[in-house]
Computed example of a mutant assay.
Amino acid sequence: MKNEGQSITRIIGLLRDKLTQLAPEPGKIPTAIEGVYIYRMDNDVRMDCFNDPCIGVLVQGDKRAIVADEEYRFKEGWYIAYGMDLPAISHITGASPKKPHLAMSIPLDRYIMSQLVTGVEKRPPPGNGASYKGLTAAKAGSELLDACLRLISLLDTPERIPVLAPMIIREIHYFLLIGPEGEDFRLLGTHETPNNQIAQAISWMRENYCSPFNLTELSRLVNMSQASLSRHFSRITGMSPLRFQKRLRLYEAQRLMLTEDKSAETAAFAVGYESSTQFNREYKRQFGEPPHRDIERLLVTGAVLGEEMV
């Protein structure tokens, strides 16, 4: 255990140096590796956004997140894995220009998980996942951290990225599957388990949020009864499917107003609302202010909507 701890400390130090070099300014920084981002924040910040499925590794700083009414706390050397698209309220604390919040993220791919599950089938079979909330957080082991270091180091040799990056990303998924929290990922990667089916349902809803909500159709698509879908959906997300769709629409409308300069009325109709009055009422209930005031505030603070800082 002593050698493991020393190895983790060494790798985190190397990752910190690497991310500091690659992220000289605050923000979410895309890399030449598709879907891999570097994050730096020099000040404390609160974010209210939807998260794409991803694996985030915290290299420096502290963070807490509220998902499905449960609070999670993370610190240096931890990983966060969002197994499905989920809304979260996140707080980055203790960040400063001298000691910025530093992290990196890798896309979490359920298809890769499903391919790898057979390789860990000798482990205890997954349970029912009754405690899973769509988010997994734990201390990262040296093997996982080393794979992250090797992945981000590929940016020094971009000609190797097309061949080696997919292999290392697959390796990172494998270490999650065999780690202490591996059951969460085995459930995500195993077809016909409730967690996998809810992840499918959420992915479909994210792509079809403008369409009128139809629980019967959604249940059929993921091969669950309506009662089972509603029960497991509420367990994981903390809300009903219908409320989840409303949340999706509001976030997308917020994004349209902020990044595409759409009016509140145009954004409302674009995301599926038939009444601007209803949209304004639900928007204020979700974000605390009417649309125009909220967007003015976000523009002043320089916020970037839908951009999770892991």
Rank of each mutant, 00 (worst) to 15 (best):
Leu221Ala: 08
Asn280Pro: 05
Glu308Asn: 13
Ser228Glu: 07
Pro241Glu: 05
Gly5Ala: 12
Glu260Ala: 09
Asp109His: 08
Glu274Asp: 06
Pro291Lys: 02
Lys122Glu: 07
Lys133Ile: 12
Tyr111Ala: 10
Pro290Gln: 07
Pro87Tyr: 07
Ile172Met: 12
Glu260Leu: 08
Asn51Lys: 01
Gln226Trp: 06
Asn196Glu: 10
Pro26Gln: 04
Arg243Thr: 13
Phe185Thr: 15
Leu19Pro: 00
Thr237Asn: 09
Glu252Asp: 05
Arg231Asn: 14
Gly189Gln: 06
Glu260Gln: 11
Lys284Gln: 11
Gly77Lys: 03
Glu289Val: 01
Arg243Gly: 08
Leu155Ile: 14
Arg231Met: 14
Phe287Leu: 05
Leu149Trp: 12
Ser234Met: 10
Cys49Thr: 14
Leu298Pro: 01
Arg297Tyr: 01
Pro107Ala: 03
Pro162Leu: 00
Glu289Ala: 08
Leu145Pro: 15
Lys133Arg: 14
Gly61Leu: 05
Glu274Ile: 08
Ala267Tyr: 03
Met257Leu: 00
Met104Leu: 15
Pro107His: 02
Arg160Ile: 13
Met1Asn: 10
Leu145Ile: 15
Ile92Asn: 00
Ile80Gly: 07
Met47Gln: 11
Pro107Glu: 03
Gln115Thr: 14
Ile12Glu: 11
Phe269Pro: 06
His292Trp: 14
Phe233Val: 15
Ile29Gly: 05
Ser131Thr: 15
Met224Ala: 09
Ala264Asp: 11
Glu34Tyr: 04
Gly127Cys: 04
Met104Cys: 13
Glu308Arg: 14
Gly127Gln: 04
Leu144Ala: 02
Asn223Glu: 13
Arg150Thr: 04
His173Ser: 06
Arg64Leu: 07
Tyr111Ser: 11
Arg285Glu: 12
Ala140Met: 11
Glu289Asn: 03
Ser142Glu: 12
Phe279Cys: 00
Thr190Ile: 06
Tyr209Glu: 10
Asn214Val: 14
Gly13Tyr: 06
Arg73Pro: 01
Asp44Ala: 11
Arg281Lys: 15
Thr93Val: 10
Gln197Glu: 12
Arg170Leu: 08
Lys99Phe: 12
Ala68Leu: 05
Asp261Glu: 06
Phe50Val: 06
Arg255Pro: 00
Glu252Gly: 01
Glu159Asp: 13
Gly302Val: 12
Tyr82Ser: 02
Leu229Cys: 08
Ser153Arg: 03
Gly179Pro: 13
Arg186Gln: 03
Gln6Ile: 12
Cys49Trp: 00
Ala303Glu: 09
Arg220Lys: 13
Gln286Glu: 15
Gln60Ala: 07
Thr93Leu: 04
Arg186Glu: 03
Arg40His: 02
Gly94Val: 01
Asp85Phe: 09
Asp69Lys: 13
Phe287Ala: 03
Val45Phe: 01
Arg235Pro: 03
Gln200Glu: 15
Glu183Tyr: 06
Asn195Phe: 08
Phe213Gln: 02
Leu242Pro: 00
Asp156Val: 01
Leu187Asn: 12
Pro162Ser: 00
Ile295Pro: 12
Thr9Val: 05
Gly13Pro: 09
Gln226Ser: 14
Leu188Cys: 02
Ser7Glu: 14
Ser211Leu: 13
Glu307Gln: 14
Pro97Tyr: 03
